[in-house]
């Protein structure tokens, strides 16, 4: 197991897990979601291929009222 930090919370994760795998385990809205890993945007099309590494900081964002 490795540990990634998702929205500031440590989360044990299987080695080799991708961004898409991670999102499948979270309560994520069906659309309007964006992901950054270590401050870099990981585009939706790259979610299935982008593997997470130990210590990665993942931000999972979605639409809220604002502006």
């Amino acid at each position: 197991m490795i540990t990634v930090v998702v929205n500031d919370r440590p989360r044990p994760t299987r080695r080799g897990e991708t961004v898409a795998d991670l999102l499948a385990t979270l309560d994520v809205p069906p659309r309007g979601v964006a992901v950054a890993v270590n401050g870099e945007v990981v585009r939706r099309t790259d979610w299935p291929a982008h593997r997470l590494l130990d210590g990665d900081r993942v931000e999972v964002l979605t639409a809220v009222q604002g502006g």
Partner: peptide, 30 residues
């Protein structure tokens, strides 16, 4: 209409995008 991006939070009401789609508005994220 404008909207924003924040961390996912299962405690927040879902469906903002559904409302905006029903209203037929173009999105302007901030």
């Amino acid at each position: 209409i404008t909207l924003a991006l924040r961390r996912i939070d299962p405690g927040l009401p879902a469906g903002l995008l559904d409302v905006l789609e029903r209203c037929g508005v173009r999105l302007l994220p901030n």
